[in-house]
Design a protein around this nucleic acid. Structure first.
Ligand SMILES: [Mn+2]
Ligand SMILES: [Mn+2]
Ligand SMILES: [Mn+2]
Ligand SMILES: [Mn+2]
Lengths: 215, 215
DNA sequence: TTTTATTTTTAGTTTTGTCTAAATTTAATT
DNA sequence: AATTAAATTTAGACAAAACTAAAAATAAAA
């Protein structure tokens, strides 16, 4: 599998989680910053390799083989992100780009040794679950902060949006995975929340609360 | 720079150490397992990018820019080899192939953080020197075991041939970097050596002695 | 110094992955 | 149901990096 093929497979995997019935050509093109015609070409190739099932105009889905490949790429991506943050001291907003390259290193032995070296982590620095060597993903129980009842306490366990802007905002507000959050009040008009994070009171917009997972 | 361009630059660098006057097309083709005509094409491209000076039929040399690029690739290759052996527990005959891929990961920050994480090593698992962030290579004093006087003691500090076969032979004989070697006797006829390695007596051929560096 | 052998380059293809522009299919509106 | 809009695919082209086969330059041998 080439790097390009791997990038396509991974994008189809991520989009499948939202559109399990079939992933659109344009959606793939958007994620990979390429043109729809290029996607169509690649779908034919991936279909020939039995990694996706593709029917003209009907979107694509991953085959079992494609799904397994996708999980292995995601596994590599997330393990490398853990390495970059835990061992090399990168911050969580700096690692995605680098992991985007590291995820294509071929050795299976490498990734399993890395996994052991890191202590078999179950989640990456953004709280996303890491598939194990067999591709099994331990589902992490979580809710969006925006959908949680008032006056109960939770732990931050992940982010939905892992853009630099959002992660830097969280850093600024001293919100990290593990932080304790309690929703004090919710504004009816625009769903703005008053929360207490690690004891400190804070007002956050619905957009923020809608991108932060708690448990 | 593409991965292919980087591989060419690195090979030219290694061959330059032996042929500083100019590296031959066929030599490059041999190292990269490609055809001479492909090399010619690439030399034109690298020349256009000001990474090599190339004149038809006269071989190539690296420009300052090309030399610096080459050293950065070698730096990455060797640092990753240290990581694989010291942190992940690979043996020294397993790391070259993987480092051949890892050396192409782009981030400068990554490699400098990796360097720090590893404790700024000066040599890779095969005893080859690691260029620092500026490209400066601390020359390691060393002699081939085949050229050393009899009855003096040395430390193994590197291998000239780092093929799997040779490294596995050394493993079998319990010879590692750091081992203490003393040449007891040299056979006039074929230069076979009788040596004492970490106290154990051993007979080794000239071919072996000619691929082991001591200091 | 010719002749022969080796090395290197040129010319013309191929594969991979991309693009633009045009055609086609499907979805959404009148 | 007909028309318009959006999504998708086809057709044709291009750049990168490789190849084969043939031509040209250099080196070695007679
Ligand atoms: Mn990637
Ligand atoms: Mn992540
Ligand atoms: Mn390489
Ligand atoms: Mn090495």
């Amino acid at each position: 599998m080439t790097i390009s093929e791997e990038n396509y497979i991974k994008v189809i995997y991520h989009l499948s989680l939202v559109s399990p019935k079939g992933v659109n050509t344009n959606a793939i093109a958007g994620m990979l910053d390429t043109k729809a015609s290029s996607v169509t070409d690649m779908m034919k190739k991936l279909s020939d390799k039995d990694l996706v099932t593709y029917q003209k105009y009907q979107g694509v889905t991953l085959t079992d083989k494609g799904l397994h490949s996708a999980k292995m790429i995601v596994r590599k991506h997330r393990l490398w992100e853990v390495f970059l943050v835990d061992k090399l001291g990168f911050s969580w907003d700096e690692v995605h780009e680098i992991a985007e390259e590291l995820e294509h290193i071929k050795s299976e032995q490498l990734i399993n040794k890395l996994d052991a070296f890191l202590g078999f982590p179950v989640a990456d620095p953004h709280g996303d679950p890491i598939p194990d060597a067999k591709g099994i993903i331990k589902k992490i129980e979580k809710q969006l902060l925006s959908e949680v009842e008032i006056n109960a306490s939770f732990h931050c366990v992940g982010v939905k949006d892992s853009s630099t802007d959002f992660l830097k905002y969280l850093d600024k507000q001293k919100i990290a995975l593990g932080s304790v959050v309690k929703v004090i009040d919710k504004e009816d008009f625009d769903d703005t929340l008053t929360v207490e994070i690690d004891g400190k009171r804070l007002t956050i917009s619905n957009k923020i609360a809608n991108n932060l997972y708690v448990q």
